[in-house]
Amino acid sequence: MTGLFKSIAAAVGFTAMVASPILASAADLPSNIRLVIGSKSTGGDTYQNSAIIADALAKKLDINVKVDAVGSSEAFKALQRDSRGTTIMIFHDQSYLGNLYGVRGYDDIFENYVVGPTVAINPGNAYLVPKNSPMQSMEDVFAAAAAGVRVRVAIQAGGVSEIGFSAMKNAARIMNPGSEANIVPVNTGSQADKNQLMFDGQADVINGSVQANEQFTHLAASDQKAMRFVWLTAREETIEQANPEGMGNTTSEELLAFTTPNVSVTFDGSTDFTFDKEFFFLFNKDMDADQIAAIDAALKEIFEAGEIQKTQKASFFIPNYKPQAEASAYLKAKRDQYRQVIDSISAN
């Protein structure tokens, strides 16, 4: 309803609106763009991020951009049907992780779509244990697994939530071959379900996020709901860019205690595994390259102006604009790295 006043004005010239050409003259972009996202939630991070970007793009290009939370499978379908540039998509790493994990409905995005530019990172992906758990750190987790203790990790299968778990198994395999079998998944759904499994004592470690779980880490240890971060999958430099206040009662500096190199989940014995949830555009493969370039150029100017970064950071997102070609190559390399992790643990 951002365009309330605009639409009241438009109502006066209703017929003019109907008759107006589909293409706005400026960048040869359609005047009404539908931005579908891979999430069904309008309260989640994908929607919020996309709304920030859509708003900025609409103002910059003087067009309408409407975000529709149709979910991944409908979003891909809608994108595939429309090569005119009237439908575009924003999603995150799930789009290729789903494919790596072999989830139904996820094709290889690099073959079927034009990928990039990237716009932001949600740095909050985290793993937590109960506050009074005998395992107080990732080191303890790996030690327990090596000692033959079954460590149950609550995740949602097939994507962003599972990749950190796969990395744990991979690290356990490198440090103590065979111990990875003791790190087992408890496949569940929403954050509520993951928390509940921990409260029930049915999971030893849960996947969570700084945003959703930070307050639980400040509860007294005697509280059944009290939790402790053991690992943030983000890169060190990602968290360093966050506002120094961090999230809630936890400053960025305190958060850094849970990222590499302070917490090490090794990727190959020498470098640490990291995962940043990055949001990026996806376009129909046959969409006019000029249109994509126009969106890319507009984003570049928006990020150069420097205002959007403040909005993003206020919502605990890390600005991360990379031009389309660069972003595409970068994400492809990222994908290949994760493919290695997943292959290495499924090999045995």
């Binding site: 359609p30 009404n32 539908r34 429309d82």
Partner: peptide, 8 residues
């Protein structure tokens, strides 16, 4: 489809 994203 003739007037995309306008509800027309």
């Amino acid at each position: 489809d003739i007037f995309p994203n306008t509800g027309l």
